[in-house]
Design a protein around this nucleic acid. Structure first.
Length: 547
RNA sequence: GGGGGCGUAGCUCAGUCGGUAGAGCAGUGGACUUUUAAUCCAUUGGUCGGGGGUUCGAGUCCCUCCGCCCCUACCA
């Protein structure tokens, strides 16, 4: 294509053009970027860079600036200039003092201002949104200056030089050398507005992350929150484990699983819908406190609170109960709120979530199911006639698909979900405790009242964040509950309900009494990062394939 | 599943009553050694999501398909 490319390094990749079609079919913006890439090759450097030791993050480089050294340097430069003006000979000139820290940095080019003999470039990485590099024809070596001239927005480059402040006070690397690290052949988003088309943001997260600083901020905070969660649980003696994601029967929840097939054993497998039954087996095995942070998969609808794969922390504490795990959750979430507050430079533990200001600092509300029902609906849930009347008044479902009346408790729960649940103050994290036993088949009944299950659901910001249980550890009761669940449901549903005989066998071996909880981490991150949709806290949310 | 909205240059968007497509940024050429969304001069760039229809004429109206978003329904 061009003669000079034959002299560049490495020669092998110089003349390569895209596999699909000739240059004519390329978008002109991409062609111009390819031309700039050729210009870099013509300088004798590989536009795709190489190992670059000694790099500092942009954030670290910003804090490495030394004002005293910078001022001393400026003063000595001025002094020498003055001496020259006063006619001092070369030998009499005062020496230039330069103790300015020198840094080597790299980043994505987000701004590029070419002033002719002086090129200003702003870099971005995951530690700083903007870091300025000045490339002067006088002070930078020749190749580096050429690279700076041929740089496009979106390229990745490295620069090295002393740290100084410009006239306007911006900390800057006054580059002595510049090297390319990678070429951006795809025209980047608008430099100021960034990427705002949500579809492109989800499909091309690799652009979104560097072009949209908020996006990077959220995912960095997500990472910090999960790290803090591990630290919190590890400090309290919990053991982190990984249990099967591929299961012969997907148990531990009632949800539609994804199905697949294993060739070697010729068996059908499901992606797990919950780790619960395996974690309980570990309690049987003698782990006193276990947790797992991992993905669950549910083959159901997707909306702004549901992604088909979602991250959950599930935790079990031997010899604990619903209340003890609620306490752990409350302490954990308060600790995470502290991490989120610090990261967002917020004083205190009240964090914004859309219009809400959610108070994580005060003790979480705890209210019994029956109490909340009566408070919000106006009469006790035991008054089943009134409950049914209310359900009809609200137009709620009171019959199953075959036309049979729902059990009282199902109608009660319909009314509860329609009236009581929405009345929970979304700005106050709230545990709803003591659910009706028949709604929670895997939960141990309350010792004083067997119609009540020791289960508590945590609500924050109008979202269900996770359940807390006193776990059932009597194998005979568990077995009959499994059977009850399987009875009287239609064929389609029964496909997704399981009777896990090995789990019963494990309980027969003896599981200590236990408290267990599960938290939807994506939803928790939404709350703590003030993001209204799960797609903004999942790096690659599920999308329909592009065509 | 039902309802509503959106899709126009690489990006962010405007486009009136149906009259033959615009801006800013980016890009290209030129000037410029302390700029800050650099500035100044000149300038390229479009299958208006795809297909069909109505019309003398469609970005605009109708049908259909694709994709995304919101509401609603379903969902431990």
């Amino acid at each position: 294509m061009s003669d000079e490319t034959t002299t560049t390094t490495p020669p092998a990749d110089a003349p390569i053009e895209p596999a699909a079609g000739d240059a004519e079919s390329l978008h002109h913006l991409e062609q111009q970027r390819r031309d700039n890439r050729d210009a870099v090759r013509a300088l004798g450097v590989d536009p795709y860079g190489a190992r670059t030791p000694g790099l500092m993050s942009l954030g670290d480089a910003l804090s490495a600036y030394d004002q005293a050294a910078d001022e001393a340097n400026q003063a000595s430069v001025a002094a020498q200039k003055q001496a020259k003006k006063d006619g001092a000979g070369e030998d009499d000139l005062p020496p230039i003092a330069d103790d300015r820290p020198r840094v080597k940095v790299s980043g994505r080019v987000v701004l590029h201002r070419d002033n002719g003999k002086l090129v200003w470039i702003n870099l971005r990485d995951d530690s700083a949104e903007s870091f300025q590099v000045a490339v002067s024809k006088r002070d930078c070596e020749e190749i580096g200056f050429g690279v700076a001239k041929a740089t496009d927005l979106g390229d990745v480059i490295a620069a090295e030089g002393p740290l100084m402040r410009t006239k306007t006070g911006e900390i800057t690397v006054w580059a002595e050398s510049v090297r390319p690290l990678s070429k951006c052949l795809v025209p980047p988003p608008e430099k100021r507005a960034g990427l705002s088309d949500v579809e492109t943001r989800y499909r091309q997260r690799y652009v979104d992350l560097w072009a949209t600083p908020d996006s990077m901020r959220v995912f960095k905070l997500r990472s910090r929150l999960i790290a803090a969660m591990r630290r919190f649980l590890d400090e309290r003696g919990f053991i982190e484990v990984e249990t099967p994601m591929l299961q012969t029967q997907a148990g531990g929840a009632a949800a539609r699983p994804f199905l697949t097939h294993m060739n070697a054993l010729d068996i059908d497998l499901s992606l797990r819908i919950a780790p619960e039954l395996y974690l309980k087996r570990l309690l049987v095995g003698g782990m006193r406190k276990v947790y797992e942070i991992n993905r669950n998969f549910r083959n159901e609808g997707l909306d702004k609170q549901h992604n088909p794969e979602f991250t959950v922390v599930e935790l079990y504490e031997a010899c604990g109960d619903m209340t003890s795990v609620c306490d752990i959750t409350e302490d954990l979430i308060r600790a995470l709120a502290g991490v989120a507050a610090e990261a967002q430079a917020i004083e205190g533990l009240t964090l914004p979530f859309g219009e809400l200001n959610i108070d994580y600092g005060s003790p979480f509300e705890r209210i019994r199911y029956a109490e909340l029902f009566e408070r919000e609906v106006g009469f006790p849930m035991t008054d089943t006639e009134k409950v049914r009347a209310k359900a009809n008044e609200l137009g709620l479902k009171t019959k199953d698909d075959r036309g049979n009346d729902f059990d009282d408790i199902l109608v009660i729960n319909e009314v509860f979900e329609a009236v009581a649940e929405p009345a929970i103050d979304p700005a106050k994290p709230t545990f709803v405790t003591h659910y009706p036993a028949s709604l929670s088949p895997l939960t141990r009944p309350n010792p004083d009242d067997p119609t009540i299950a020791d289960r508590a659901d945590l609500f924050i910001g109008g979202m269900e964040v996770g359940p807390h249980y006193t776990e059932l550890n009597d194998p005979d009761i568990q077995e009959s509950k499994f059977r009850e669940q399987l009875a009287g449901i239609d064929d389609e549903e029964s496909t997704f309900r399981t009777f896990d005989a090995d789990f019963i066998r494990a309980l027969k071996v003896g599981m200590p009494p236990a408290g267990g909880m599960g938290l939807g981490i994506d939803r928790l991150v939404m709350l703590l990062c003030d993001q209204r949709t799960i797609r903004d806290v999942v790096l690659f949310p599920q999308m329909r394939p592009e065509r």
